[in-house]
C-alpha cells in the first residue's frame, strides 16, 4: 500500500526554471523534433550531439540528476535484452565465442547504438513530463490538436478526458487503500495462496472500486452540467497559453540543431 503512494504519474517536479516556464506547446514540439532526430542519426557522434542537447536542457531545468536517472531504472531489463539480442544474433566478424554463442563486432556496435537511442529517448521525453504539470501538458496537447478538428479529431474531449483521468488517480489510490483496509478488517488476505486464490481475493476490492468509480463519474457529469459545461465550444480559459519570444528562440534553436545534426551525422 505504501508503494502505491509513490506512484506519481508524469512525475512532475515543480520549479521555476526557464524550461519549466516555456509554453507546453514549445516543449511538446521540441520533444517531438528531438525524437525525430534520434531516429534520423545512426552514428555515435550523432548520439553524442543529441546527448549534448539533453544535457543542456537538464542544466537549464535545474532538475536533480537523480530524478532523470530514476527514469532509466525500469528500463534495465529492456536494455539487457536489447544488448544480448544484438550481441549474439548479429552475423558478422566474430570477436569471441562462448560455446555456440558468437559475439560479433557488428552486433556490439549495433547493440550499443540501440541502447543509446533507447536511453536518450526516455531521458529526453522524461524532461518534458518532469518540467510540465499534467494540466499544462493536456492544455498544450489540446491546443496542438485543434487544427485537426476539421478532420474529426475531438481535441477538447480528448484533453478533458486526460485531465479528468489524471485528476482522479490519487482519489482512486486513496479509495483502494480504504477498501483494502476495510476488507482486511474482515479477515481478507491478499498475500497468501496461489495465483488463482490471490486473483479471487481481489474481487472484494475491485467490485466496490468499480461501483464507486461509476457513481463518482455520474456525480461529476451532473456537477459539470450544473456549472454550465457544454463542451469546448466557446469556452474561455483560466490559464491562457502564451507563446513568447523565449518559446520562439527555444524552438528555432532546437529545430536548427536537429537539422544540422541530422545532416552532418
Amino acid at each position: 500500500m505504501a508503494m502505491m503512494r509513490n506512484i506519481t504519474i508524469g512525475q512532475y517536479i515543480p520549479g521555476e526554471s526557464v524550461i519549466h516556464r516555456l509554453d507546453p506547446r514549445t516543449k511538446i514540439i521540441a520533444t517531438f523534433l528531438y525524437i525525430v532526430l534520434l531516429f534520423l542519426v545512426n552514428t555515435f557522434s550523432g548520439y553524442a550531439c543529441s546527448a549534448l542537447l539533453i544535457l543542456l536542457a537538464v542544466a537549464l531545468s535545474r532538475l536533480p540528476i537523480k530524478y532523470i536517472l530514476r527514469g532509466i531504472r525500469p528500463l534495465a531489463f529492456i536494455i539487457i535484452l536489447t544488448l544480448s539480442l544484438h550481441f549474439f544474433m548479429t552475423e558478422g566478424h566474430v570477436i569471441f565465442q562462448v560455446g555456440f554463442l558468437k559475439v560479433t563486432q557488428e552486433g556490439v556496435v549495433r547493440g550499443l547504438m540501440m541502447v543509446s537511442r533507447l536511453v536518450l529517448l526516455v531521458v529526453g521525453t522524461s524532461i518534458l513530463t518532469l518540467t510540465t504539470s499534467p494540466i499544462l501538458l493536456t492544455d498544450g496537447i489540446e491546443s496542438l490538436l485543434k487544427p485537426l478538428k476539421g478532420l474529426g479529431v475531438p481535441a477538447h474531449e480528448l484533453a478533458m478526458m486526460m485531465t479528468i483521468a489524471l485528476r482522479f488517480i490519487p482519489t482512486l489510490i486513496e479509495e483502494t487503500e480504504k477498501i483494502m483496509k476495510a476488507q482486511m478488517a474482515r479477515g481478507a488476505d491478499f498475500e497468501s495462496g496461489n495465483i488463482f486464490q490471490r486473483a479471487k481475493s481481489l474481487i472484494p476490492i475491485l467490485i466496490p472500486l468499480f461501483i464507486n468509480a461509476f457513481r463518482r463519474a455520474d456525480d461529476l457529469a451532473v456537477a459539470m452540467e450544473a456549472r454550465g459545461y457544454r463542451g469546448g465550444e466557446g469556452r474561455t480559459r483560466f490559464r491562457v497559453l502564451r507563446f513568447t519570444y523565449k518559446d520562439v528562440v527555444a524552438l528555432i534553436f532546437v529545430a536548427v540543431f536537429v537539422v544540422v545534426v541530422s545532416i552532418y551525422f
Binding site: K178, A182, Q183, A185, R186, P204, I205, I207, P208, N212
Partner: peptide, 17 residues
C-alpha cells in the same frame, strides 16, 4: 486480532461487494 476487534469504517456501504 481482527476477529476480536471488529472495525466499521466510515461510509461502510461503499465497501459492499
Amino acid at each position: 486480532v481482527r476477529q476480536q476487534v471488529g472495525m466499521v469504517f466510515q461510509y461502510p456501504e461503499y465497501q459492499l461487494f
